[in-house]
Design a protein around this nucleic acid. Structure first.
Lengths: 247, 247
DNA sequence: GTTATCGCTTGATCCACGTCAACCGTGTTA
DNA sequence: TAACACGGTTGACGTGGATCAAGCGATAAC
């Protein structure tokens, strides 16, 4: 392992990666690039790094210089207040980008933690800016990705501000299902990588409330839960839950 | 009024504007540009438009082609669900940008409504991308602005997910105060442009709860409220409210 | 195999905030 | 000047989800 890439925090292995033969290229940064352009992106992304379950990819306060694309695995991001309260701000899976929050102040503003053994591609941000000055498609796609993050956050705000517990959980499950589908996995059956407490933190609920809602969904035949294994039995039923009941 | 800029929805007047002599240039897009670069930005931003109180700057679903800088005035953005529920996602004041959410899908995803008579500068997005390919500072600053929006949204998620009613309102008031200060207004005395209901929607509370919290703050000598006129009497007291009480 | 730990479930109770409703002050219209 | 609409305040009451607590299954440590 070359010493200049060593890092006390993460077990890592530096591997030559290539966007051009990554099966996530339709979900990640290379969307819409020509072979030639993709090759130039390849040259920029030099390292693939392994992050073991439980380890931090970065921590709030650390200097920002790269964004990260998830090659495989599953992450959460969380922020914490001085008084110790914290909240999960998102769960990220393969093909999604991490670290966009750090651009603003040149320091990361949240923690990114692997929820399973994962691999990420580091993308030095200044080089991404450089390349996106030359490749219009890259520039535009990157802007779309940032904008999509803003739209996603608005969705979460909506969820936290106006939905009741069961609606939040239904929205959460449907969102996961849809993202797994986009990655070629079953839309109806998956393993949760996060605990009830982490789900609760993300949804603004206590873990007991999450657990009760899961049980309730099961009673009603909407899902089958066994620990972290989820089977969705009635998608329209879950959707109906979301589009009712004022608060 | 030139017909090509006419618009049924907004009363408008097209005026030649110039970032170079705008007193918001330290808050807005031109941050860190040289005189020369600023001039090029000037050329791109051709129109200043007036939006009267209550009018939409844009609506959810409309095609996106420009972002907007607020020259003067005050806006809210809100999203609404199919079932009629809606939520205010933000309040924007002079020097802030509107419309970033539209980049992602090429359509606006929320409504932007003036809460007082306002003036905005339209910035055609494709031209902004073009210019930011040439002016590194502009590119980088724009990325920072988008990232800042993401960080802001995380703050709101934190607020909605972990804080109780009075903490939320305290955080809201302190945030407004800080933003007014940055614009050279009093940090301790201001008029709210929005109703209790809009504040409540933003904070995930009912208007009655907002009203009660205001009254409570007044009883405790933290603020003086009279309708929309607010005087902050005890900033440390408000801050203390925020950094206590688990939930 | 035993023990400890962790995540999860479930029940009983409590309380912050929502709901419903009355009333009031201010600004607008006639 | 009256009448009205609108936003805000305040009280009484109800409830969804938090809190507290007990117990259990799965995994890890020894």
């Amino acid at each position: 392992m070359p010493p200049q890439t060593a890092n006390k925090e993460c077990s890592l292995a530096v591997i030559k990666t290539a966007c051009s033969n990554c099966n996530l290229r339709e979900l990640c940064l290379p969307v819409g690039l020509s072979d030639d352009e993709m090759q130039r992106l390849d040259e920029m992304i030099q390292t693939r790094r392994r992050i073991k379950r439980g380890e931090h990819l970065y921590r709030a306060g650390q200097a920002f210089d790269s964004i990260y694309a998830i090659r495989s695995g599953f992450f959460k991001t969380d922020v914490l207040l001085e008084d110790g309260r914290d909240q999960v701000t998102g769960f990220q899976m393969a093909g999604e980008l991490l670290g966009l929050d750090g651009i603003s102040t040149e320091h990361h503003t949240c923690n990114a933690i692997a929820l399973e053994d994962s691999e990420i591609c580091s993308i030095p941000f200044s080089r991404l800016e450089g390349l996106s000055r030359e490749i219009h498609n890259l520039q535009h796609h990157f802007h779309k990705v940032m904008s999509r993050e803003i739209v996603r956050d608005h969705g979460v705000m909506m969820l936290l501000g106006t939905m009741r517990a069961e609606e939040r959980l239904a929205a959460f499950l449907l969102n996961l299902s849809q993202r797994f589908t986009a990655r070629g996995f079953s839309h109806a059956e998956f393993y949760l990588r996060m605990t009830r407490e982490e789900i609760g933190s993300y949804l603004g609920l206590k873990l007991e409330t999450v657990s009760r809602a899961f049980s309730r969904f099961q009673e009603e035949g909407l899902i089958a839960v066994q620990q972290k294994h989820i089977r969705i039995l009635n998608i329209p039923g879950l959707k109906a839950l979301m589009t009712h009941q004022p608060r």
